[in-house]
Design a protein around this nucleic acid. Structure first.
Length: 358
DNA sequence: AACTCGGGGTG
DNA sequence: CACCCAGAGTT
């Protein structure tokens, strides 16, 4: 293969570009495996610019694995508030607890052991091993698959699980044994800044090695077939306050969508119903007797929801009234809430009244 | 192998 | 508004 003969030159081009152009990011100023681990978990789901402030706050609040292991779940979720994929922070804590209790507080330095930790899959395992410990292991994420698929014109469908193995083998063949950390990060940095879905080939430090560029088909790669087919479910959300100026919130179930986060009571939006009717029909109590409806909004309409899981959640609303509790304004501030609820809460504090319900 | 799990960015 | 992004766990 074309690039195989030029592996050394490829590495040199990539590494010198990376050392010249790499962004100055907080987690690039440390080799603490725990900090690298935290950053990788955050970066799995969110863009760099979004992660930076979360990372700083998280490390500030939980500076050691022992402190994170002892943390209260509510505080944990609060630090993750707004990042999404909330089960991952609980997996992170579970993994950290495992390291503290069974690995003597040392993050394992081999793929087999580190992969047993909760929330640590093939990518995160390779990232921590290579970046924190300088071990030559592959760390194949979406960026790397995009870069490699173009570099070698690999046209396998990257949506298929088995395709990832191909890329892992290529990376193990190409990887720089002297500096696997910079090599892996260089590939990802390239994918994040140059070899983007709409590639900027004129700026690319390794375009001379890129077969797709020579064949003018970089725009067609990588091949990806899967398409998501989610439904949008319009939802009505109720901000209800009692005579003691406390707000009625509901803790979501421990599993599934937005697990363990707090929300305003929420129902599927019903055309032609008044808020009072919807509360009565779906929550089973009379709004007038108990509380004052201060705000009523349609939210989540921009999210994609799976109809079945939503129906399951409606069942929960009807059958587990213990999840409903009244909180003072100060208490509400301390509860971890998903972004749409945060936005409603902001509006309420600024005196927002309820939407129409047509 | 297919599905679940959020939120932000882009066109 | 539609569409794109992406790794790990669960089933």
């Amino acid at each position: 293969m074309h690039i195989i003969k030029q592996k050394r030159e490829f590495r040199e081009s990539l590494l010198s570009w990376y050392s010249r152009e790499k962004r100055d990011l907080p987690w690039r100023r440390t080799s603490n495996p725990y900090y690298i681990w935290v950053s990788e978990v955050m970066l799995q789901q969110t863009r760099v610019d979004t992660v930076i402030p979360y990372y700083e706050r998280f490390i500030d609040k939980f500076p050691t694995m022992e402190i994170l292991a002892d943390a209260d779940e509510n505080d944990l979720l609060k630090m993750w508030e707004g990042l999404g994929y909330y089960s991952r922070v609980r997996n992170l804590q579970a993994g950290v607890r495992e390291v503290v209790s069974t690995y003597g507080g040392e993050v394992p330095t081999n793929r087999k052991d580190i992969s047993t930790l909760k929330g640590v899959g093939p990518y995160t395992a390779g990232a921590v091993l290579s970046i924190a410990h300088g071990i030559p292991e592959h760390a194949v994420d979406g960026n790397v698959m995009r870069v490699i698929s173009r570099l070698l014109v690999i046209e396998d469908d990257i949506a298929l699980p088995r395709t990832k193995k191909i890329f892992e083998e290529v990376v193990m063949d190409l990887i720089d044994r002297e500096d696997p950390s910079s090599f892996n990060q260089g590939l990802m940095e390239l994918g994040a800044t140059i070899c983007t879905p709409k590639p900027k080939c004129l700026l690319c430090p390794v375009r001379d090695f890129c077969i797709a560029f020579h064949e003018r088909k970089q725009e067609e790669l990588p091949v990806k077939t899967k398409k998501t087919k989610m439904k949008v479910i319009p939802v009505a959300s109720f901000a209800i306050r009692n005579d003691q100026q406390q707000w009625l919130l509901r803790k979501r179930p421990a599993t599934g969508l937005l697990a363990n986060l707090w929300e305003f009571p929420m129902v599927e939006r019903m055309v032609g119903r008044t808020p009072q009717q919807m509360v009565h029909e779906q929550f089973g109590f009379e709004l007038e007797n108990l509380v004052e409806l201060l705000s009523f909004k349609h939210i989540f309409s921009h999210l994609t929801w799976d109809m079945q899981s939503f129906e399951a959640q409606l069942q929960e609303v009807g059958t587990i009234p213990e999840d409903f509790r009244f909180f003072t304004e100060k208490e509400v501030e301390g509860l971890p809430k998903p972004v749409p609820v945060l936005k409603i809460w902001e509006e309420i504090k600024q005196g927002g009244k309820y939407d129409d319900c047509k």
